[in-house]
């Protein structure tokens, strides 16, 4: 594994038939065109290819409007790409499914359900018996630090608490891949750090595949095995960087680790370049 950021050409390659055995998600030459109200075509994603290995924590980093959310929606099956295809375990993705669990930027909790009702919704839909679903959900609610709030409605929760419920609700139905769209973007620094630590603990225990959109460089380096750097207009992959830092990662050790610091500095510089120059065609 490389410590120095690798060139994109080494990673961004068309998916061939002889794919790596452990690939769980393959994005193959995906482009997305949106019709704007000015009746012009807007190329939001241009020829994106990316392979995500099973159990990997992959972050997508890039300036606002570069198509991070759109890429996540395509993997989720919520949006059909204009061209190209995404696959999950070799099967073309044609729609949403419980194997891929989204956590949206907007939380999207069910406001008519309590915290417990929201978290139980997925398992109940999957046919888990009430008592069992409730027990599991209560444990999850405790894990995300909301014990005591089970009977609260979403409108009675703060932003950070809603985010925790959204995470618990998705974890509750055991998706193989978590698709997280700037889940901590709207939180204060302290809550954000806590939730990052919690997410890392959960992930280091279950080793679920995570596709994580963010525009925070330290967050991406702290959490990820791999950081995908995107540029905008049109949205492209500029660089894929392996983050070769030991796990389990402890925040207090990592912040002092020169290797961590170098990743952050290098990626921040790259981010500046991407932001200034946009995409190189």
């Amino acid at each position: 594994m490389k410590v120095v950021p690798s060139r994109s050409s080494e990673w961004v390659r068309p998916v061939t038939s002889q794919k790596p055995a452990s690939a769980i998600i393959e994005i193959d030459r995906v482009s997305q065109v949106f019709q704007t109200s000015a009746r012009k075509d807007h190329l939001a994603l241009s020829n994106i290819s990316l392979t995500i290995e099973e159990g990997a924590f992959v972050s997508i980093l890039g300036p606002s409007g570069c198509g991070k959310s759109t890429l996540l929606y395509i993997v989720g099956g919520f949006v059909n790409p204009t061209s190209g295809a995404a696959k999950m375990k070799g099967q073309a993705i044609t729609g949403p499914g419980p194997d891929r669990g989204p956590v949206f930027q907007e939380f999207a909790l069910f406001p008519w359900k309590t915290v417990l009702g929201n978290v139980m919704y997925g398992p109940r839909q999957q046919g888990v018996r009430v008592a069992e679903a409730e027990a599991q959900s209560r444990a999850l609610i405790e894990m995300v630090g909301l014990k005591g709030y089970e009977s609260f409605y979403p409108k009675e929760l703060s932003g950070g608490m809603k985010q925790r419920v959204a995470l618990a609700r998705t974890l509750a139905y055991h998706p193989e891949v978590l698709l997280m769209d700037e889940p901590f973007g709207a939180l204060d620094a302290h809550t954000r750090t806590r939730l990052q630590n919690d997410l890392l603990n959960i992930w280091e225990r279950d080793r679920k595949t995570v596709l994580f959109v963010t525009h925070s460089v330290d967050e991406a380096v702290f959490l990820s095995d791999k950081v995908v750097m995107m540029s905008k207009s049109p949205g492209r992959i500029r660089e894929v960087i392996d983050i070769d830092l030991p796990r389990p990662r402890r925040r207090n050790e990592l912040l002092l680790d020169p290797r961590y610091q170098k990743y952050v500095v290098d990626i921040e510089r790259m981010f500046d370049e991407v932001d200034e120059t946009g995409s190189v065609s």
């Binding site: 919520f78 949403p96 669990g101 989204p102 069910f110 999957q126 609700r169 998705t170 139905y173």
Partner: peptide
């Protein structure tokens, strides 16, 4: 919200 529901099946 509808997408969340769709993902749950």
């Amino acid at each position: 919200m509808l997408w969340s529901g769709a993902a749950m099946g």
